[in-house]
Amino acid sequence: MSALNAQVETFTRLTTLGETVTEALDYTQVISTSGATEIERTVAAIGARELPAPVTGALDALTAVVERVIIANDPHRAIDWIGIYPRLLTTLLVAALNPKALPVEAHAAGGAAGSGSAARLPGGISFTDAPRDGRAVVYSGIQADPILKPLAQAIAAAPPADRLFARALMGDPEPDASTAAAYFGLLPTHRAPNDALVVGALAIGGKAAQSNAQYRGAIVEATTAELLKRRAALSREPERMVRRERRFAVDGASADPHPFDVTVETGPVPELWDCKWGARGIDDSLLAELEDARIRAAGVGVRIAIGIVAFDTAATVAARLSVLRGPREQTRIITLDTLARLAAG
């Protein structure tokens, strides 16, 4: 069996494990069907072409990751990998065979939020710190971990392919330096083992399952905040204007069940952002919560921006949204492919 044909079998086994989560079956079937189609197209495009040794080494590393997920019998992690596996496979091949075709992030033109001047918060709305309950105490300790800031800065500056490979390492049950070398060795950046992106991704991926999930969520928030602080309009006081884990209130009353992950607390248009590691974290209740906050602000004559940052591919996020019915017409969606748009405004 060729290295590429083996990828088809590997993806099928991954799908079988993911489909054991019955409550996520509709979403899993959507991403597995589209993923299988992408893999089939990739295999057909390569055909009988002989692959260089570095490529087969990277493919072997990718297969080994899925084996670790299957051996761990973790169907929820399997679903996450079903979403990114096809894009990882394609990106590895493009990086080796046609690097000029690697995706380049489309930076949005500087909009009002990015190029204008910050102003005071509009009257009628306010932000407060979340209560210091047990969860908040534990999570604040994670947010203060010194590994997060340099990793967030590295992700913010990295091209889309580098971000994708870093995500793969963070989602690997047992990542190692050889896997990182196999991935990044194919990219034009040729990141060294001591590169902040590599070091941070390996550190998070190497944590136990529960800690790993918490750190993955924290790095999405940290990266979101890092990019928002780079806006020209917020450069004078970024730490005051971009905050984490804050409650939003209209006329002093907050109806939100939990604090928003990242907020931009300045006029003319304050912003509420919810951050998710994977597309599966987006659900109808989240979409409704964001829309409710926007409507309540509009009720006192204030316009706010609402959005979701999903540290997942655009295709996977689109697949997730296709099975949801919650309101999202006014919700901005940022994906792994378009993170830099946060800094542009």
Rank of each mutant, 00 (worst) to 15 (best):
D274R: 04
A249E: 10
L227P: 00
K207M: 14
D74E: 11
V30S: 11
G83H: 04
I155R: 07
A45Q: 11
A119S: 12
T313A: 06
L339E: 09
I295V: 15
A106W: 07
G124N: 01
P327R: 01
E291D: 15
A298W: 12
K149M: 09
A233S: 15
E40Q: 15
A298Q: 10
T335P: 12
A113G: 13
I334A: 03
L148E: 00
L14H: 02
A166T: 02
L234N: 10
I84E: 11
L14P: 01
R13F: 02
I125R: 00
V137P: 07
G267N: 08
V264S: 00
A168R: 00
G18W: 02
Q153W: 00
E19W: 04
A112C: 07
A305L: 12
E291Q: 01
A192P: 05
P188A: 12
S322N: 01
A96P: 08
R41G: 13
T224Y: 02
S285P: 04
A225T: 12
L25I: 15
H258E: 14
L286T: 05
G326I: 02
L342C: 02
R230Y: 02
A279N: 07
K207V: 05
G301S: 05
I295Q: 10
A253R: 15
T316Q: 12
A24H: 14
A166I: 03
A106I: 13
P268V: 05
L321K: 04
E9H: 09
R325H: 15
T313H: 09
A249W: 04
L4T: 09
E271C: 09
R332L: 09
I155W: 06
F127K: 01
Y215M: 13
R325W: 06
A61V: 07
L4W: 04
